[in-house]
Design a protein around this nucleic acid. Structure first.
Lengths: 151, 151
DNA sequence: GTAATAAAAGACAAGAATGTCCGATATTAC
DNA sequence: GTAATATCGGACATTCTTGTCTTTTATTAC
């Protein structure tokens, strides 16, 4: 559905919001580890998110990435920051540029409700609203580590 | 949502089914034009679809691509032929490999219902069922041509 | 048989996405 | 001030997707 960059971005921002209290600042390696992504690639994505104003950063010792926990950031805001627009939330399943109710592709009517719903979820879901379940271990940000099976 | 190859494939097969009557055989250029795709790239996709048994082909003069209009082909069959599996219909929005009800990503619960809906649509929608609306001009397979504006 | 046609197959090229690296810059500690 | 730290910025490398081209193979017409 989204590019890997965008998936990393979503996971990174969610993680940063978990740690948003107490003015904690997170380093690139700490974030990369938590979202299970390559360190340098994570750095680049965090730069983009900072430039776009989704998160904040400070250089130097005790520097790192952080957010204002009161800032209202939606998942769609993150998507938009990564793609430059939220066009990706409007794409046609068959790849038509102009697919719409007036000029529909053959499956437009059948998937329209789904696409609209996902868009609504992305636009109306704030990162903050996800933090609670995550902190309580009811949801997860990275793949479960397989224990090495003893033989 | 899907790769361009897969979008082309879906559109191509739908088009071939429209012409399925009368034992008509379609050439690569004819199909490429109809789905608005590069000719050689279309050729490669049609080869894959033929190899996977989604469509049929015959070489030589009066050869081309065709289908048995009675064959039941679903959209999911086409997706599967292009990706080698239908895993793409199960992907997590945040990119987790193991996202599930038991091990959910933070937005799993919010999008699950609709992701399942799309999978159901793809699995239960036959190409044949789309042909009628298309033939009657109620749905479309390619972008509308912009008329050149006179000045 | 030969010539013409059209798909099959595989090699190749271009572009985009993903991933890596290094020097520059800003901040802190001293 | 200097040294240490950590992001910023851009260049670079790799991989995957997309797109192109050429030769081979099968079929038809004659």
């Amino acid at each position: 559905m989204f590019s890997k960059s965008c998936e990393y971005a979503l996971r990174a921002v969610i993680f940063i919001y978990i740690k948003a209290k107490d003015g904690v600042r997170l380093s690139v390696p700490a974030i990369a580890k938590e979202i299970d992504a390559p360190i340098p690639y994570t750095a680049k994505i965090l730069q983009t998110l900072t430039r776009e104003g989704v998160i904040e950063s400070i250089k130097g010792p005790n520097g790192g990435f952080f957010v204002d926990p009161r800032a209202r950031v939606t998942l769609a805001d993150i998507v938009k920051a990564m793609y430059g627009s939220d066009k990706v939330l409007h794409t046609c399943v068959l790849g038509l540029k102009e697919c719409s109710d007036e000029y529909p592709c053959p499956i437009h009517a059948r998937v329209k409700g789904y696409r609209d719903h996902v868009r609504t979820v992305m636009k109306n879901t704030t990162v903050q609203s996800l933090v609670n379940d995550l902190a309580k271990g009811r949801t997860f940000l990275k793949n479960e580590r397989r224990r090495k099976s003893s033989r």
